[in-house]
Design a binder for these strands. Sequence first.
DNA 1: GTGATTAGCGAACGATCGGTAGGTTAAGCT
DNA 2: AGCTTAACCTACCGATCGTTCGCTAATCAC
Lengths: 216, 216
Amino acid sequence: MSPRKSVLETAATRTRILDLALETATSTGLEALTIGTLAAELGMSKAGVIGHFGTKETLQVAVVETAVERFRQRVTTRAADAAPGTERLLRAHTEWFAFMTEKHAGCFLTAAASEFDARPGPVRDAILGALAAWSGYVRAELETATASGALPRGTDLDQLAFDLTGAVLATDQAIRVHGDPRAPARGLRALARLLGGGPAPRSQDLGHPDVLDAGL
Amino acid sequence: MSPRKSVLETAATRTRILDLALETATSTGLEALTIGTLAAELGMSKAGVIGHFGTKETLQVAVVETAVERFRQRVTTRAADAAPGTERLLRAHTEWFAFMTEKHAGCFLTAAASEFDARPGPVRDAILGALAAWSGYVRAELETATASGALPRGTDLDQLAFDLTGAVLATDQAIRVHGDPRAPARGLRALARLLGGGPAPRSQDLGHPDVLDAGL
DNA sequence: GTGATTAGCGAACGATCGGTAGGTTAAGCT
DNA sequence: AGCTTAACCTACCGATCGTTCGCTAATCAC
């Protein structure tokens, strides 16, 4: 039925597969991906789908890499023009939260990390690599912020990074599990307090409304 | 081979099944539970296992209920003798973090919530019910703390509950994904700052070492 | 133009999934 | 003592899983 396509069409087919695979894996999980249903929804045969990857495990790794690339384009590069340090971190997280809300599905990599934490193999390695890259990014910006005086010297950067992760995970869970539309605002409020001398945690005052309302 | 047992032995078999099911589901996930391997590891037949529940879905719900009961015994009841309000909340979270660390597996219910967030049905209902019960517990203690003056009046309790959840999730991820043994200490430090006038988030000072080192 | 390459298909494979049927045997009520 | 109930077994069911095997046909290198 479908003979050989040109190299351009072949690449397009591959991305078509990965797009749908990432979408379904985001909602149902990375292990719940089945080649049969994937092929059916693509109008292809199972062999045609797996021919691009050879193995389901390889497909899963490719899905993770696709998600990492999406994250980079949507979050990291958009925050690149912000000033290094706390400002860039706030921008990056703002973009991230908006990214989570767009598909109403939270962060794929966060969910995948929780799904594969106890399943060693190349898939988990790819996920852990993505997490390590992100925490390295955060760490570098935090050190820049400390050097520039935006954060007081002597700041416990490990603890601060831990707290930032907490804000991200709480936002992700609120979106994913509870579908709470106020989650990004809450997450940004927590971040502003941690990074920028925002309001005290117990104050009901909104603090920096320009930051909190930006792009949401 | 194995004829009918007494009602006592039958109940024991049931809990034996649920114990192993909860253990494997904690590490591998609730959907990755298979009746066949469960039966094999129990030295039983598949029919013998599923005969207690009728359906895999019913078994999954029973596993969730077992986890909730374990959580209650390990966390809530142990914190019941602490003074209501912030003190009890700190105790409960301290117990919770210790509970996560014991099996080096994090919190089962947190992982299950992330796994079933997009799979409607009785299993997800049971998980969401457990989450709602916990957040109701937290909410009640926070209101007590506000009424008693332990928290300043006008505190945004929703935001505070959100931040507490963030500390819990960050601790859980650090244990589950990274196996970080310092995670409980970090989580408690975040909690102490949020609840009890602990050290500022940027200070490297440990603050209340008696709390941070308690039972860890 | 010609030959090697390859995307994708149809069909089938062994394995495993959740679940069922029927038989066996002891427990528990009367 | 007799009868019903139920826990557990073996065996099997249809469905689906990931993967493999030829095969076709169009593209690409020469």
